[in-house]
């Protein structure tokens, strides 16, 4: 439904996209996951005809976005990072205007506006200028605007950035409903949890190119399954603790800057490894404040794949050489 290959785009000295490929099958959700400045928004702008890539090609619903931008726009509902609503217009007026610019006709645009306000829990606020809305309400109104013409493809650029926890939860519910009703969705996010919850498929993007691709589970598997986390009571015990952890670790043992928080990925039976580690600590008289077994989050995935964030957060010691980037389950 959405397909991009070899997209590149440079702004003066900065290469925002360095040959990005991605594909979203019909009815699926792809999350484009990456930190600020990774090229997510540039990718979205290229796919939605707002920006012409320097090279590469993209199709949306079978329409070449470069050859027929107007045709492609008719198939795409876009909700951007900054709510694209007119603050002087009411929610209703905003949606009617969008409907008429989609050429639905006045009556149809009005009916659709009421329908969407109700669906997004904005009926009461519908006749107030959108200036008076909260951030979450504005985002919902913007998303409603993207849905006016019932486009087969939805592209959401950081739909929950800057929202409070409750608004984010609401937004997730809304997005899940959309997906359940069969929409094909591309969403960008810097929240790993968001990609985990909403997406079938995740492309991790950094410096304008895809550095990993897979389902949330596949990506998590690359970090070696569960992690053992330890907080030492005494930093003097660090060497002994790292040595014990290294015996069971897959990859490196991470040590925090203060030298007291250690973590290591393990494979297979996490509990057995934990027991082994605790026995080792007992033997070496290592005192711990906290020790536990944790399921990997996408944060771990992200750190282990991109490397750079991990290097800032912790120094690495261990048996294996650190892996820079890796291709996962392509």
């Amino acid at each position: 439904m959405i397909r991009a290959s070899g997209l590149t785009k440079s702004y003066k000295a900065v290469q925002a996209l360095a040959g990005l490929d991605l594909a979203v099958p019909e009815g699926k959700v792809l999350a484009l996951l990456g930190p600020n400045g990774a090229g997510k928004t540039t990718a979205v702008r290229c796919l939605t005809t707002l920006l012409k890539p320097d090279s590469g090609s993209a199709t949306v619903a079978g329409i070449d976005v470069l050859a027929d931008p107007a045709g492609a726009r008719a198939k795409i509902g876009l909700s951007g990072q900054y709510a694209a609503v007119d603050e002087h217009l009411t929610g209703y007026e905003n949606l009617v205007m969008v409907g008429r610019l989609y050429h639905l006709g006045k009556a149809r645009a009005q009916a659709r506006a009421r329908e969407l306000l109700e669906r997004f829990d904005l009926t009461e606020a519908g006749d107030r200028p959108s200036k008076t809305y909260s951030g979450g309400m504005r985002r919902r109104l913007d998303l409603a605007g993207a849905l006016v013409a019932e486009p087969p493809v939805l592209i959401l650029d950081e739909p929950t950035t800057g929202l409070d926890v409750r608004s984010r939860q609401q937004m997730w519910d809304v997005i899940r409903e959309l997906v359940a009703s069969g929409a094909t969705l591309l969403l960008t996010t810097q929240y790993l949890e968001e990609a985990d919850r909403l997406a079938d498929d995740i492309v991790v993007i950094d410096h304008g190119r895809a550095i990993a691709h897979g389902t949330a589970d596949e990506l998590k598997a690359t970090t070696g399954g569960e992690r053992i986390e330890v907080v030492l009571a005494d930093v003097e015990d660090r060497e002994a603790a790292v040595r014990t952890l290294a015996e069971v670790a897959v990859g490196d043992v991470r040590v925090s800057d203060n030298g007291r928080e250690l973590s290591a990925a393990v494979s297979g039976r996490g509990a057995g490894h934990l027991l082994h580690v605790l026995q080792g600590f007992e033997r070496d008289s290592v005192t711990v404040l906290d020790v536990g077994l944790r399921r990997p989050t996408l944060d771990d995935v992200f750190l282990s794949i991109t490397g750079h964030a991990a290097e800032e957060a912790a120094t690495t010691t261990g048996t294996d050489a650190p892996a820079d980037t890796q291709e996962v389950a392509r």
Binding site: T48, T49, L50, A70, G71, R73, A74, I76, L78, G80, Y82, A84, V85, V98, L101, Y102, H103, D142, G145, A146
Partner: peptide
């Protein structure tokens, strides 16, 4: 941005 994303 909204205007730009519409087929207007």
């Amino acid at each position: 941005d909204r205007f730009r994303s519409l087929p207007m």
